[in-house]
């Protein structure tokens, strides 16, 4: 059914958006792309798995704990991998290679701990399915979309409405000016990493419960797709990430409907190529000569 695929695409797309927001946030303050983000997402999903299956906690409590732990991991990546390089004044290549290294360490530690095969993940938010215009829509898809949208609104409120958000926005504009005005730039960067990692953890839990499995290498693909989404929407812009995520999700679903499941992964990267070639600053991004 086409409509089913469309709904499917939207709910997956919102998860992409949730991960893509992490790229956008970090890009906003640091002007680098944190290639470690996909792995942080995987780590979040695994922490939820440990909480629910191995420790038998309440799912909501498990997700909250996972958020905090994954946020800590994001913070650790920043402190170990990126902050020393910032202090030294290294160029972006060094920061990027360092973040690739961090992602490599975390993926393989997860692989050592859990093995590389698929692990079953419990279904969270399932309350049966219902019919809409002849299409079967599971309540899980709707719930995922609702949870993700609530989170995105929350993130927007944090960034637009609070003092921390104000500080983040000022660091985005100019680190020096923010520091002159008494903002602790390092703390703000750390907080940004925490926020991005926590939203990735929730995205990991939602996506894992939707596909009902997790594996240590799942973050590679997700990271790249979310990156495509962030680039499509215009990296650095929150609304752009959401639009990009939903676009990628829907286009993927349409491709699966017309071409078959094997082409699902190709489509996202094809879009990435096209966007980078035609409009590298994305749908909502501002045109900058330094970016490309």
């Amino acid at each position: 059914m086409f409509l089913e695929q469309l709904v499917n695409g939207i709910s997956v797309g919102i998860i992409y958006a949730l991960v893509a927001v992490g790229y956008s946030l970090v890009f906003g303050v640091l002007h680098i792309i944190n290639l470690c983000h996909g792995v942080i997402y995987t780590f979040g999903a695994f922490m939820v798995y440990i909480g629910i299956v191995q420790l038998e906690l309440n799912p909501i409590l498990a997700i909250l704990i996972s958020c905090v732990l994954t946020g800590m991991l994001g913070l650790l990546v920043d402190r170990i991998g990126l902050k020393p390089l910032r202090d030294k004044g290294s160029d972006w290549t060094a920061a990027m290679i360092s973040s690739i290294g961090c992602s490599y360490i975390i993926t393989n530690c997860l692989q050592i701990a859990f093995g590389s095969q698929l692990i079953r993940f419990p279904v969270l938010l399932d309350f049966g399915s219902f019919q809409l215009f002849g299409a079967t829509i599971t309540s899980q898809q709707v719930m995922i979309a609702i949870v993700a949208i609530v989170l995105l609104i929350l993130l927007t409120l944090i960034i637009r409405g609070t003092r921390v958000g104000l500080a983040m926005r000022s660091v985005c504009q100019s680190e020096t000016a923010a520091a002159i005005n008494g903002i602790n730039v390092n703390n703000i960067i750390t907080f940004t990493f925490f926020l991005g990692a926590a939203s990735a953890a929730i995205a990991g839990a939602l996506n894992a419960s939707y596909y009902e499995y997790i594996r240590p290498s799942m973050g590679n693909m997700m990271g790249l797709k979310a990156f495509s989404a962030a680039v499509l929407g215009g990296i650095g812009s929150l609304t752009g990430s959401v639009i990009g995520g939903v676009c990628i999700g829907v286009i993927e679903a349409v491709a699966v409907y017309f071409l078959g499941g094997t082409y699902q992964d190709l489509v996202a990267f094809f879009i990435l190529f096209l966007v980078l070639l035609i409009r590298p600053y994305g749908i909502l991004g501002k045109k900058e000569s330094t970016k490309v």
């Binding site: 792309i33 680039v231 190709l266 990267f269 990435l272 590298p280």
Partner: peptide, 24 residues
């Protein structure tokens, strides 16, 4: 026209596109 992290991520995307093409 690309440089920096964009190019780096694109090279990774290139690998996955190529892998999927060979598979399909």
């Amino acid at each position: 026209r690309l440089s920096g992290t964009y190019l780096c991520a694109t090279t990774l995307a290139f690998f996955y596109v190529e892998l999927n093409l060979i598979r399909n």
